[in-house]
Nucleic acid binder design. Structure first.
Length: 135
DNA sequence: GCCAACGTTGGC
DNA sequence: GCCAACGTTGGC
């Protein structure tokens, strides 16, 4: 089982949208590195749902319910989607600022590659962010 | 195959 | 709203 972080601008697709829609496609990825990460996702892997730009916080957790298949919104047929479903809202959002402040999270991909929208999270980092969200 | 130009993202 | 960082495109 692996852990990931999915980034979205809340204006385009927010946590509330995700909760309302239930299982839905994570579409619109147009970056090869992000696509490669999507392809590595397995059913039941867990992903943090991160709001960029306005909130800059991890707000919830989604679960992969369907592994990758071609992105129907991509007419070049180069990119893929997975289906994800909201499973849990964090008790308290974990902000980018808090992540930066935490020495254990200094290597998290979010800080190094701010533009990558789908990235892996180490188990230790996952646990740490969970801990921060509940205290 | 290199690299300049351009477009987009996202933090501040 | 600005701008740095990065990815992509296209001319050579």
């Amino acid at each position: 089982m692996k852990y990931w972080l999915l980034k979205s601008e809340p204006d385009a697709w927010s946590w509330d949208n995700q909760v309302k829609e239930g299982a839905s496609m994570w579409d619109g990825v147009r970056n090869y590195q992000a696509r490669n990460n999507l392809k590595k996702m397995k059913k039941n892997d867990l992903c943090f749902f991160y709001h960029s730009v306005t909130e800059k916080s991890v707000v919830g957790i989604v679960k992969v319910v369907k592994e990758y298949y071609p992105d129907p919104t991509d007419n070049t047929e180069r990119f893929v989607v997975v289906d994800v479903k909201a499973t849990k809202k964090l008790k308290k959002p974990v902000t980018l600022y808090q992540i930066k402040e935490n020495i254990k999270l200094k290597d998290v991909a979010l800080l190094k590659q701010s533009r990558l929208s789908v990235m892996p999270i180490k188990k230790m980092e996952w646990n740490e962010i969970i801990k921060m969200s509940s205290s």
